[in-house]
Design a protein around this nucleic acid. Structure first.
Lengths: 335, 335
DNA sequence: AGGGCTTTTGGAAACGCTCCCAGTAAATAC
DNA sequence: GTATTTACTGGGAGCGTTTCCAAAAGCCCT
């Protein structure tokens, strides 16, 4: 095997100019059939592979996309990334991933880093929509951006795949209220991020239908520890909530751990609704009532929107529904 | 804001040669203090960012790593990737991900693609260790490779992070045998892949301690559907197993679904042990006995080994333990 | 047969950097 | 005071492509 075959070698072997090789390989319209065959033969004979890096260098397009995520090990985000990658790879794009792990500064660092790698676009599931450095980096990034359930100031042009959280949260809240719950706590995720905001809004809106219903919001972050500590705290207070609305799948694990520790039974002692599925959520005891969304689809749609923009289209926004799956984790509160 | 500031602009502004700017930015030892400051001032004033792409072009190193994975939406793999990314980003490396989704040909395609992107190294969690095209691509890839619980022919030099599956499977098997189980089925994942192989080996070895124990292997793939269909089939046969050893977390979901459909209770009707954790495995009913491994650590170690190799070290192999967590999903079989 | 087209091809300049090589200036040696 | 080193700096080639421009080749027409 030869070490490095480049266009030069191909050109020499085919007895043509380098530029002709390039023309053939880029499917330029003005090459003769003869030329095309000679070049392709030489390419095949030498096992030549086009160097993507040099291509990018010349054309300015790297055929790569950066995915800036709050945490790829969260199954929802991971599935988003898989959906995006599937879609992107069809068009020859590669996906670079990152993990900000709840640290907004890392969002900004990654955006900057991806920019200096000249990615052709960005898919964002960032940690904080208002972090000034993040916004600054995004403003400096002049290429297509698609948000996954995030919102940015209007001066940063970006497409978005959003969820209609109300469509899932409202029926869930109504379900709890109908069962007789009056004290509901929402243990919510990162404060400055669309899903947290929308879920809180929807829950509060649902609560408005009955003046006796009191909804308390406890924002923190998408983490086990937040769910764990909050649950311990609120369930030990004098007048604990009769229902907990869990604002994220990682939070859920903490909540369950705390409830187990407190020896509280679901739904006897407290009712539970959770947002964002986990693979086993349907099998836990009791099967959880949950507000879910199709993460794979979101990733695919985000990639589609991004490719659209790369091909010159204007940024678009897609809104996808969420849905509520009743589960046995909700029951009438004991008085 | 100016559009593109390159070294040229910086050099002009600082009144020095482009090569001097480069020297300062690459921390070359022979630059005077005066020069360093002039350049750095100009860099700061212009907000210049080094172009990683052009750098790579010149130096040959892209500071990027390809992660070829069977399926990044599997929480274990996702967590591997997060571990790797965390570690790599510390050294300025980026991680490119891919999803072969159980299709060995895609493994090969991705390796090829990453090679033409000139990634500096590869982390592999491939679908099939014996796929000829995969092996061919890997042989052609002359840069560092690290395997995550995979094995390759000896002529392909590669580091590896392996699991000692026996350390978790043996006690699990022993536990089942001690409880009195004699017919155990292992619903196993992709056939030509180390974890499947090792788990089967360990289980069979454990079974040898008692001549009455019969272990049946049913390989298939790491998928819900495999778990689902296999479970339906084996539990409907005349002499169904008294214990199922589930060889992967995605398989588990299928198994549970099938058992629910068959209205079989765990552990009354059948005992269950599962491999590879899922976030909620400890909360399902009953809490599952499981063989687990630390996925985050694996990813980090893989990245470390890779960086080591990139810096000139010889490929190394690390072996990490697995462990068995007893759960209430195992009980003595009803006779 | 020669002029004006169109199609196809070759040559060379970028893309933004790094790094080798010469060259200048300062410092040391004799 | 000249020769030799040492310490920096500037110029320019080159990484592997694409792409612009001009030259060549073919074609049609009068």
């Amino acid at each position: 095997m030869n070490e490095k075959v480049g266009m030069r070698e191909v050109a020499k072997r085919a007895g043509v100019a380098i530029s002709s090789v390039s023309r053939v390989l880029t499917d330029s319209p003005d090459v003769s059939e003869v030329m095309r065959n000679r070049v392709l033969d030489a390419v095949a004979a030498l096992g030549y592979e086009r160097d993507l890096l040099a291509m990018s260098m010349r054309t300015g397009a790297t055929q790569s996309i950066g995915f800036v995520a709050i945490n790829v090990s969260n199954p929802v985000i991971a599935t988003n990334s898989v959906g995006a990658e599937n879609e992107l790879s069809k068009s020859g794009y590669s996906l670079l991933i990152s993990n900000s792990q709840g640290n907004p500064e890392l969002d900004a660092d990654y955006i900057k880093h991806f920019a200096s790698r000249r990615v052709d676009g960005l898919i964002l599931s960032i940690t904080d929509e208002e972090n000034p450095r993040t916004l600054e980096m995004l403003r400096a990034f002049k290429k297509p951006i698609v948000l996954i359930d995030r919102e940015l100031p209007a001066d940063i042009p970006a497409g978005a795949v959003l969820h209609d959280h109300a469509s899932g949260v409202m029926p869930a809240a109504q379900h709890l209220i109908n069962l007789g719950h009056r004290r509901i706590v929402l243990i919510s995720g990162a404060p400055r991020v669309r899903p947290s905001r929308e879920r809180a809004l929807a829950l509060k809106a649902a609560a408005k239908t009955n003046p006796d219903v009191k909804v308390t919001l406890i924002p923190g972050g998408y983490s086990e520890i937040h769910g764990y500590e909050t649950t311990l705290k609120i369930m030990r207070e004098p007048n604990p909530p009769t229902a907990i609305f869990v604002g994220g799948n990682q939070i859920l694990v903490g909540v369950l751990r705390a409830l187990r520790e407190l020896k509280l039974k679901v739904p006897t002692d407290v009712s539970l609704v959770t947002c964002d599925d986990l693979p086993l959520a349907e099998f836990i005891d009791p099967p959880l009532a949950r507000v879910t969304r199709d993460a794979m689809n979101v990733g695919e749609k985000a990639a589609e929107l991004l490719l659209e923009q790369i091909n010159g289209a204007e940024p678009r926004t897609i809104i996808l529904p969420t849905s509520f799956a009743v589960g046995e984790s909700c029951a009438a509160p004991k008085k």
